[in-house]
Design a protein around this nucleic acid. Structure first.
Length: 787
DNA sequence: CATGGAATTGGT
DNA sequence: ACCAATTT
């Protein structure tokens, strides 16, 4: 906020006035600069340069990895029968992601379940609301990559399925070691520690981990790349050639070792590598090497690389930033008197699901010509000081260089543990029941154990990689359950898909023994417990608001760390703490629409107990748990080829099913399996999947599968839409809301109706007349939403 | 446009 | 400590 900030300096104010006149022209090489590129005079450059004093003045080498349709790939790992089929990962009533097979048939990522089903009735829906398995697989991916590249290579994670690597040191270190080419002109790139190539025999250790490469880049090369054209220094080129081979090696490792498909981008920054990696998917890689000529020339190449894309293509430009910019630009060109509010926006759903896919470029062009702005358009109208006005003096200067393809941000190594671990759920207008709270408490505790306690299995003594804790996740077991979305007779015209669930087999009371032996000591101790809730409105102030998120925190009860106690008793301790916070948060007992439980402030040592309980434990002869934890890297079983491991962990009938499907010889596979397990710990990695033989359970599942009834209004409802129905439907208001209504809080009511109407327009074919009638009856008469 | 779970960041 | 805003 100081006056000395760059965006408030005189030079920027000048630019603001005489836009376009004070630019410097980047010098232009014959090969890569068709048009003159104008750059802002003071554009901060993100590094790079010639290799005159390699490697210090050389640009960074950044690889971006992106798992293809990650939830699908992970689901196929746990259930190989999904391979080759159209699959949609369902969260509530949308598809978080869809397999490429389903995309080919018209299913849309982030589309509504019903829309994609119409296009692709054969699609198998997989429940994706429980993220446990995806977290496990994500952790394996990270572990594998960091093992291959060594602990010295910074790796930053973005969500569960993307990561960046700064391989500058890795590659320059290799090139500086003067590797010798063999007779065929190939060189060997030795990887720092043992990579995860399956080592079947004892003794073949680090010596042969690596890959060989020739003098040409592999994979796609972006058409924007100046890699070939601009007379880059040979060594500068070779750095990126090697990087493409490394990226290829990483993709191959993910495929062969984990069975996952991924795509990669190679460039000089996080921004550029992520964008270019998206140019060719799935299972492909693309290079963009803006490395020829001077720094200014390189800046010109980068600027041209991004200029035709829509601004949302830039990592960091999300919906809020993009909208605010577009609004500002529209305001600047004020020849249109049209009010820009979003009245007629909702009719864009008319895109047919079978529309042929446009190329990335074509799509960007088409949209920029209609309603989305291109980077170039924004650049020509928005200055740095504009960005500071719009986004503040922190975000503004950070975002602005991205518009020129400049991104100096470093690859920040992912911490071993996240800063917080939280879970949340949403509830119907009745609010969370006590039972639901208890369940949420238990799933938080379970997650804390899974992710913050060590696995009790031995670590791989040979591993020298980054210390990735082997947490206690791999013993989890799932049971596959198929449900018809509804019974055919009810809606004979609608598609009737299978919804496939993988239920975590409860490891509670009955199996406490098994569980505690599978889990080791705590690796981190969350010292803080935070409870956040959203209630419909606060009554205290005069202007009630629909949404109010509040939170309170307290010390995490230390009882939860006492592993010798039963799960239930620890859960009860946690539950008590949650309830007292909840009580303080919500003294009026308003219905809780959203409940979030978070564990924060993760410490390496167990927090001190309160004096009372400390004395109690002294009396009981116990000492607080303290461990020198051997931070294990990935175990052998984790690193070795897991296809067989996973296969053998499957129940017999699934094995048979798979064998039949792929025409495999079951006997031979099982033989091979015993061979493969000659070596080390026999514990198979990966979760195992079990069919439940219990007929009662199956029948119970069937009973619930056909139809469901709204908890609030009792109307029949499609099971997988039940949540939304209960969340948004407007009949049968719970007492609390009805009371507010009577007290004249009409605006709360109205907000409720507006939201509800939006929802209903999308699901109306399946509403019962009863619901619609009640909907009409309870609608606020004063100010009806237009329609 | 919204969807939904989870994390981080920045501001008070 | 709290909480709103933002991204993905």
């Amino acid at each position: 906020m100081s006056a000395s900030h760059p965006c408030q300096g005189a030079s920027w104010r000048d630019r603001d006035r005489q836009r376009g006149k004070r630019h410097v022209k980047a010098a232009c090489t014959r090969a890569n600069c068709a048009s003159l590129m104008e750059l802002p005079r003071d554009l901060p450059l993100d590094g790079g340069g010639t290799v005159a004093h390699f490697p210090t003045s050389a640009p960074r080498i950044i690889i971006h990895l992106d798992l293809d349709a990650f939830y699908v790939g992970a689901s196929r790992l746990r259930d190989p029968t999904l391979r080759g089929l159209p699959v949609g990962i369902k969260q509530k009533h949308i598809l978080a992601t869809v397999s490429y097979e389903a995309r080919a048939l018209g299913a849309k990522k982030l589309g509504k379940v019903m829309d994609s089903l119409r296009a692709c009735p054969s699609m198998i829906l997989v429940d994706g609301e429980d993220l446990t398995w995806f977290r496990i697989v994500s952790r394996r991916v990270f572990g594998l990559i960091s093992k291959v590249c060594g602990a010295a290579t910074p790796i930053e994670k973005l969500g569960m399925d993307e990561l960046w690597l700064d391989v500058t040191q890795l590659i320059d270190g290799h090139l500086n070691s003067l590797p010798q080419a063999d007779e065929s002109g190939k060189r060997w790139f030795p990887l720092p520690s043992g990579s995860s190539a399956p080592s079947r025999r004892a003794g073949d250790s680090a010596s042969c981990q690596g890959f060989s490469y020739g003098r040409d880049a592999v994979g796609h090369v972006s058409k924007f790349s100046a890699f070939e054209a601009s007379g880059a220094h040979p060594t500068a080129s070779m750095r990126f050639v090697v990087a493409t081979h490394l990226a290829k090696h990483l993709l191959a490792m993910l495929d062969s070792t984990l069975g996952l498909s991924a795509s990669a981008g190679v460039s000089t920054s996080k921004l550029l590598s992520k964008i270019v990696g998206g140019e060719n998917k799935p299972a492909q890689q693309t290079l963009f090497a803006p490395i020829g000529g001077t720094l200014q020339q390189q800046a010109g190449i980068k600027a041209r690389f991004v200029e035709a894309r829509e601004i949302r293509a830039l990592a960091g430009f999300g919906s809020v930033v993009a909208n605010r910019i577009e609004e500002r630009v529209r305001g600047l060109s004020h020849h249109e008197g049209r009010s820009e509010s979003k009245t007629q926006l909702s009719q864009w759903h008319s895109v047919p699901p079978h529309a042929p896919e446009m190329s990335v470029e074509a799509e960007a062009t088409a949209q920029s010509s209609t309603r989305r702005l291109s980077v170039a358009q924004v650049r020509s109208q928005i200055t740095l000081s504009d960005m500071c006005k719009l986004f503040g003096t922190v975000q503004g200067p950070r975002l602005w260089p991205l518009l020129w393809g400049q991104d100096p941000s470093p690859v920040v190594p992912a911490p071993l543990f996240p800063a917080t671990i939280s879970i949340e759920d949403t509830f119907s207008p009745r609010g969370a029941t006590q039972d639901a709270v208890e369940r949420l408490v238990r799933s938080l505790l379970r997650r804390l154990e899974n992710e913050l306690r060590a696995a009790s299995t031995e670590s791989d003594p040979n591993s020298k990689g980054r210390a990735i804790p082997q947490v206690g996740l791999d013993h989890l077991k799932f049971r596959r359950v198929d449900r018809q979305a509804w019974s055919d007779s009810d809606y004979s015209n609608a598609p009737n898909p299978i919804v496939r669930y993988y239920e975590l087999i409860e490891q509670d009371e009955a199996q406490d023994g098994a569980r505690s032996s599978a889990l080791g000591p705590w690796l981190r101790f969350p010292a803080t417990l935070r409870v956040s809730i959203v209630t419909p409105a606060s009554i205290a102030d005069g202007t009630p608001v629909w949404k109010a998120r509040n939170s309170k925190s307290s010390a995490m009860p230390v009882e939860i760390f006492e592993v010798e106690r039963s799960f239930e008793s620890r859960a009860n301790a946690l539950s008590k703490a949650v309830q007292s916070l909840e009580k303080a948060l919500n003294p009026q007992r308003l219905p809780i629409r959203l409940l979030n439980l978070a564990a924060a402030d993760l410490r390496e040592r167990q927090p001190d107990r309160g004096l009372g309980s400390w004395l109690a434990s002294r009396r009981a002869g116990k000492t607080p748990v303290e461990h020198e934890v051997d931070m294990a890297s990935l175990s052998q079983s984790e690193a070795s080829s897991i296809d067989l491991d996973i296969f053998s962990a499957l129940p017999d009938d699934i094995q048979r099913e798979l064998a039949a499907q792929y025409g495999l010889d079951l006997q031979q596979l099982q033989g091979a399996r015993s061979d493969a397990h000659y070596s080390t710990d026999a514990a198979p990695s990966g979760a195992s999947l079990q069919y439940d033989d219990d007929d009662n359970l199956q029948r119970d599942v069937q009973d619930r599968s056909g139809s469901a009834h709204c908890e609030v209004c009792q109307a029949p409802c499609l099971p997988f839409l039940l949540h939304d129905h209960e969340t948004w439907q407007v009949s049968g208001l719970p007492e609390e809301l009805r009371q507010m209504e009577l007290e004249g809080l009409a605006r709360v009511d109205e907000a409720f109706h507006v939201a509800a109407e939006r929802k209903f327009s999308t699901t109306s074919p399946y509403e019962s007349p009863v619901v619609q009638e009640r909907f009409a009856r309870t609608r606020s008469p004063s100010r009806k939403p237009n329609g």
